[in-house]
């Protein structure tokens, strides 16, 4: 299915098409974060709602490459670029620019005959001390995410959240309880490790997270080497902060953690409703996505003439932007419902 009607209406020649397979750049014949199998996939970052298996060729940042190999298999045909490095596909100039979402996550800039489009992928503006800082990129067309695009989502500074987590961890420790945080294995986990290791080195994680740590460490990301989860004895387990994936099966390792408290760290923890859905004892509002003020700021910074909104509250954010006299539209309805929104 091909949707070119909006460019006719807007009188613009767009670089982008929104198809069932995802965001398509017809001039270069490649897709960005395709939903279905394509010949050439350009990947913003390794999360499973962006990087899917089955594509013939992949292009991503140097840091995302080992992550893709880990997640999609070492046999995939993947080529990588440094941030800011230009690459031509069928005459379309393409480059990656930091999105600040997680280490190696990128916005994709495509340029053809002076017309520029930027596809943000997932992004956040706050510097987390690990991911490359978000870089505003000038463009004519900007595709923005909208995971937290409601005015109720306003984040607090990372230092405050991290300090809160540390206090909680210390309290647990003094009560001889381990502290278990469930966090997304790629991104959130490394962000927490990196920020909390400055407070105390008693951090460990589930093997599924350590796999990602190793891949990123080998690629030069500064992630501290942690104590092995399985080497921690019952007597010392209460000292530890344990990072686990969101859904874990009951593992043998838990035998050595008889007492513990559970926490969730996610942007959804901001609302009472979100906390209600969580089974954890404590909730920390920490997101790898931009909050409402940041989303607005990023859109303005791009100076885009046209803004396409996807990945979340697309309709609402597009309507809001339109009311701000920005030419915006939601593009989510072009995609099939296979997308599973993730942090």
């Amino acid at each position: 299915m091909w949707f070119g009607w909006y460019s006719a209406i807007m009188g613009l020649s767009s670089l982008l098409e929104f198809t069932e397979k995802g965001i398509y750049v017809p001039k270069g014949d490649f897709y960005i974060d395709p939903i279905k199998k394509v010949k050439q996939a350009v990947i913003t970052h390794g999360h499973s709602d962006h990087a899917r298996s089955g594509n013939i060729k992949y292009l991503c940042t140097d840091l995302t490459k080992p992550v893709l190999k880990l997640r999609l298999g070492s046999k995939i045909n993947v080529q990588s670029l440094a941030f800011g490095e230009s690459f031509f596909i069928n005459g379309v100039k393409l480059s990656f620019h930091p999105a600040g979402h997680l280490p190696g996550s990128a916005q994709v800039r495509v340029e053809y005959k002076g017309h520029i489009a930027v596809i943000s992928g997932d992004y956040k503006l706050e510097k987390d001390g690990l991911a490359e800082a978000f870089e505003p990129v000038f463009c004519h067309e900007f595709v923005t995410e909208s995971t937290f695009a409601l005015p109720i989502y306003q984040w607090q500074a990372q230092e405050k959240i991290i300090a809160d987590i540390f206090t909680w961890w210390q309290q647990n420790q003094s009560e001889k309880k381990a502290s278990i945080i469930s966090a997304y294995p790629l991104g959130k986990s490394q962000r927490l490790i990196s920020a909390l290791y400055k407070y105390s080195p008693y951090i460990t994680c589930h093997p599924s997270i350590e796999n990602t740590n190793i891949a990123l460490r080998n690629a030069g990301v500064d992630i501290p080497i942690l104590d092995d989860l399985f080497s921690i004895t019952k007597n010392e387990s209460h000292r530890y902060l344990v990072l686990t994936p969101t859904i874990i099966s009951q593992g043998l390792w838990l035998q050595n953690f008889p007492h513990y408290e559970l926490a969730d760290a996610s942007g959804w923890m901001a609302t009472k409703q979100g906390r209600k859905r969580s089974t954890a004892h404590r909730h920390f509002t920490l997101s790898d996505h931009a909050d409402w003020p940041s989303l607005n700021q990023a859109v303005l910074a791009s100076q885009a003439e046209t803004v396409f909104v996807t990945h979340g509250f697309s309709d609402d954010f597009a309507r809001h932007l339109k009311e701000q006299k920005i030419n915006a539209q939601s593009i989510d309805h072009f995609f099939t419902r296979e997308r599973i929104e993730q942090e």
Partner: peptide, 28 residues
């Protein structure tokens, strides 16, 4: 907050708790 009605309403319904929404909507 000076928000349009629809966005205000949307925020309230998303929170499902008026007092929670009020706190989240007010400036930090």
């Amino acid at each position: 907050c000076n928000l349009p009605d629809w966005l205000f309403e949307k925020s309230l319904s998303h929170c499902n708790d008026v007092l929670d929404a009020i706190n989240l909507l007010l400036p930090i």
